[in-house]
């Protein structure tokens, strides 16, 4: 649905975005993750045709945004970082204007707007002036605006920024629901958001792609070892020895002593070897019961920090 190839944006000597390539399939929700200033908004502005790229191409629904902007733009609904609202209009007036702008068929207009307003839940304030709305409502009107003309592709730039936790959950649910009919690119610098909503994540840093994968694969597949936490009732000296003897264990560390002789350990092992079963049998044989055992996937935060900061920063 969206094909991005070798996208580069230069401002004089500075490269805001350099050599980005990725594709988004139909019906997919793609998370676009990166620290502030990584080039997320720039990339989104280029995809939507608001600003031109210095090099590379963007194709939306098969149309090149530079060569055939009108057709390409018909497929896109865009919610920029700052919702593009006319403060002196009511919601109904504003959405009518947007439908006209996006050349929605006059006969379909009213029904479509009613549906959209119902969907983002602004029907009850439809006749209020936009300038009098709260931030959460303004954001929803912004989202409604992107939905006008039922475009195949939705580009949402930090859609939950500045909302309260309840609104954030609502908007996320809404985006997930929208993902059934639309292809969505969603940018964020909040990791749980991306892992909650997106099927695939592109992490960018300093204008370059740092990683592309599903949130699960990213947290599983990163690094060479897997980590888990285990709490065992037994004297430290002998338990530690037993754990070390298991094939594949690379590293054991006492984490905290919960009660006397009930100790929590962090165990690291080779990624390819599951040491949890041998651990269970070893402990059963020795007569030290395992109280708790859970694997510690790297969170997206860990991966993110790992990718966007230098190695030194992570080790600290």
């Amino acid at each position: 649905m969206i094909e991005i190839q070798n996208l580069t944006k230069r401002y004089g000597q500075i490269k805001a975005v350099s050599n980005l390539s990725f594709t988004v399939n139909k019906g997919e929700i793609l998370g676009f993750l990166g620290p502030n200033g990584a080039g997320k908004s720039t990339t989104m502005n280029i995809i939507t045709g608001f600003i031109p790229a210095s090099e590379g191409s963007v194709k939306v629904g098969g149309y090149d945004i530079m060569e055939n902007p009108k057709e390409a733009k018909k497929h896109i609904g865009y919610l920029p970082e700052l919702p593009p609202l006319y403060m002196d209009m009511t919601i109904t007036e504003y959405l009518n204007f947007v439908s006209e702008l996006k050349m929605v068929d006059k006969s379909k207009r009213k029904a479509q707007l009613d549906d959209i307003m119902e969907l983002v839940r602004i029907s009850d304030v439809r006749n209020r002036l936009i300038k009098n709305l709260s931030k959460g409502y303004k954001q929803r009107v912004g989202l409604a605006q992107a939905l006008v003309g039922s475009p195949d592709v939705l580009i949402l730039d930090e859609p939950t920024v500045g909302l309260d936790p309840k609104q954030i959950i609502e908007i996320r649910k809404l985006i997930k629901a929208l993902g059934k009919q639309h292809t969505i690119i969603l940018s964020s610098h909040i990791l749980p958001e991306v892992s909650a909503v997106c099927e695939r994540v592109v992490i960018i840093n300093k204008g370059e792609i740092a990683a592309v994968d599903t949130p699960e694969n990213l947290s599983k597949g990163f690094g060479t070892s897997s980590k888990f936490s285990v709490t065992i009732a037994g004297p430290k000296s002998s338990v530690e020895g037993y754990i070390r003897d298991i094939y594949g264990v690379k590293y054991v560390e006492q984490n905290l002593e919960k009660e006397k002789d009930v100790i929590n350990y962090i165990v690291e092992s080779d990624k390819d070897i599951d040491v949890r079963r041998p651990l269970f049998f070893a402990m059963a044989k020795a007569g030290y019961p395992i109280i708790e055992l859970k694997s510690m996937d790297m969170t997206l935060e860990d991966i993110f920090l790992h990718l966007v900061t230098d190695e030194k920063g992570v080790e600290q």
Binding site: T48, F50, E71, L82, P84, M87, V98, L101, M103, Q145
Partner: peptide, 14 residues
């Protein structure tokens, strides 16, 4: 100033 320029330029009008 209000950012509505984005709406105009990114909609299918030249």
């Amino acid at each position: 100033k209000n950012g509505t320029e984005v709406l105009l330029v990114s909609s299918p009008v030249s």
